[in-house]
Amino acid sequence: MRSRSDRLFLLSLLPPAATIVAAMMLMIYVFVYHSVPVLVREGLTFFASSRWSPSTSLRSAFYGILPAIYGTLVTSGIAVAIALPLSLSMTLFLNEVAPPRIRAFFSTLVDMMAGLPTIVYGLWGLFVLAPLLQRLVMEPLHRYLGFLPLFSCPPISGYSVLTAGVILAIMVMPYTFALMNEAYASIPLTYREAVLAMGASRYEASRILLSMIRPAIVGSVLLGLGRAASETVAVTLVIGNTPTISPCLFSSGYTIASLIATQYGEAPLYPFMVSALYGAGLFLLVLGLALNTVGLALVTRWRVRMGVSA
């Protein structure tokens, strides 16, 4: 039985809850509502065309976001491809090798990295990482392996899809590490004892224990992709912002987020451009939510299966 005062208490907690519900509904409404004009006008070519030509004349204005979708997928892919081995190594190193004091120090540093303002990564990426990658990675690769399409274009500036991928890798790594580390550390002790009792070396134990948390690793990869796809300012500073699709990693490009960040300010001057940017945003929203839902489901389903409480 619920008393009057309890009911009042519940009622007083509903307005804050309502703001969250309202914010979510407004989010969906605003993005769908504003995307409709461009989707009606251009149909699916909006997602499939690489022509981004803002114009004040209605006839020649056309917006295709394929380069931005492509850039988002490639940069996030590079980011996770680099972050995965690094965060896996860290997880194993901290859990299997490092003494407790080093473990605590190390995870404090990773926490610090996770929270560092993204604009600081961007500034460093723009003035330190981009020139460094250009000189030490892109130019040698182009010179010696330039026959491969991946390295075929001359790295005229350091601002490229590759640079964006690397800066994203640095930013995403603490996040994927935290997810994997949590999963690895919550493997029930009995399994670990059983593995060690068989006389497994650290390498063998790691392999066996890692195979147990495979779903959680796949989940962290998806969550890492979602995180990388939604990052804005650091990428905007280093990707060069041109609507190009090139197999070459040294060319400049766009991500959906950097497209919005650089174009939204002038968009009201051109017909349909605001709508096009909301359409791109809607795509990013759906992509992000899909990656996160599946990723979280994998991470939690694993916990349930192992009988570990969430």
Partner: peptide, 23 residues
Amino acid sequence: IDRAFVAVIALLSAVGIAPLFYI
């Protein structure tokens, strides 16, 4: 193999944390 494994993960861990110090 065990020694090599420890060396590799220690090295990659250092690579992972290095950008923080650089930044």
